[in-house]
Write a protein that binds this DNA or RNA. Structure first.
Lengths: 245, 245
DNA sequence: CGAGTACTTGAGCGTTATCAATGCATGTGG
DNA sequence: CCACATGCATTGATAACGCTCAAGTACTCG
């Protein structure tokens, strides 16, 4: 399946001019652009710049006019909302290949920030919309992405509304394990790509609680730290049990 | 805007055979079907039955094969997830005109139940998918709906992850007020269409907490009950302040 | 009018938040 | 190379918010 997609992408790229920016795009086949053939892509990308952000930099503030949409080509972004007194909720993370701009609203509903140095491929929204209108495959892909994000958000609703701190941490680690596996990491090796603070604000917990729960799992020999951001699942059955209550 | 949509719908309906089920559909112009002209609609709906459920009945269980999609024509549905020990989280409610089936997954991710007696317009999924493939307007509408649901789910993430009980209740009441206004109710009159139990499981609170918070708002003269399920906002500024922390 | 269900109110407890201190890397300048 | 600053993570003590358990009240419907 993946190899088929790659083959198709290679085929398409073969016909792109050697200097075309999409020729070296690391997420060419997994991003929305994957819905386009080479001729469309060539036209599509004409003039759209690539932009880079350092760790911590803000791509867009909540309330800003959403004049562009993006594909994340490298790095990691977070979508967050701030309450007036400083409380923060992270609504989700964007990984390479993910699309930023799954909305018809004219303003950003969340603040978008780089967690680590990141690069994005930018498309002015009017251009993107008019282009999409003539490309049913692209629109279908957008729908598929939105449906997928919706499912993920609803899973997170269950976590935030009804799971205990232990269950939240266990669920989060399993989610990372799943993602890591998809990227080819050893099945039980996990890299937590964010700080404890981001983890807490994603899971609806304070940073101290995150730390304590991780320490509990370590003490129970369910996980084993191999670094501050890396760990190994020692007892996958147990952690799956913990994640579901 | 609404009147324009109605005019277009009337135009289209004028050409439908008098006995066509869509002719009397109360949500004809607001549902996904609104993206279709009369000829398409006539063909689209051919043979798809209307189904009815009593309050409390289950339309689909989590894990069931999702063999159909639906438009809710009357009533109210809830999407819920149950944890092994009986905890329940309601991920959302569906109101008349809403679409059930915004996913490409083959199984239902949530249990769907009628909150009050409800009727749905059913479409076998294979038929719906093949039909949609030839109707860009329908696919665009699906994307719009998914994007809208995604935004709503992310708002709810903020509520569940970071808001206090008081803030959750206030936010919920304002949401109902907004919805009521869209349907033409007096601006500050609210009908809570669900039980306290449903309210709690939607807001990540216990039923007792919901009750207590409502009592607090009543004691503070911010709201005034006109019935168990109906109330009036006496101090909208205050409640908006409460909702945002 | 009576039975059953839904909702409200109360008392006490537990999980997680808050406040505070300590630990542990990494980096900088003397 | 070490002293120190800085940023992030861990650990501890205490408190608060919302949960649990229990009783009481008020609808709704036969």
């Amino acid at each position: 399946m993946a190899s088929l997609a790659l083959a198709v992408a290679d085929q398409a790229l073969a016909d792109l001019p050697p200097t075309h920016p999409c020729g070296t795009c690391p997420v060419r086949d997994i991003a929305v652009c994957g819905a386009l053939d080479d001729a469309s892509l060539r036209c599509f990308k004409e003039g759209g710049p690539t932009v880079a952000y350092d760790a911590g930099e803000t791509v867009a503030f909540e309330g800003d006019a959403a004049t562009s949409v993006y594909t994340l080509t490298a790095g990691l972004l977070r979508l967050s909302r701030f309450l007036p007194d400083g409380r923060r909720q992270i609504a989700g993370f964007l990984f390479p290949g993910d699309f930023l701009g799954l909305t018809l609203e004219k303003e950003h509903a969340f603040t978008v920030q780089a967690v680590v140095p990141s690069t994005l491929c930018r498309f002015p929204r009017p251009r993107f919309d008019s282009f999409a209108a003539g490309q049913p495959a692209l629109e279908r892909r957008l729908y598929a992405l939105a449906a997928q994000e919706l499912a993920a958000a609803r899973e997170q609703l269950v976590l935030l509304g009804r799971k205990t701190a232990t269950e939240r941490i266990a669920s989060f680690l399993l989610m990372l394990a799943r993602r890591g596996r998809a990227e080819g990491t050893a099945a039980d090796d996990i890299r937590i790509p964010v700080s404890r603070a981001d983890m807490g604000d994603y899971l609806g917990l304070r940073i101290e609680t995150v730390s304590r729960e991780l320490s509990n799992l370590k003490a129970a020999r369910v996980i084993q730290f191999t670094g501050r951001q890396t760990l190994r699942l020692c007892d996958r059955d147990r952690i799956e049990q913990l994640a579901e209550g």
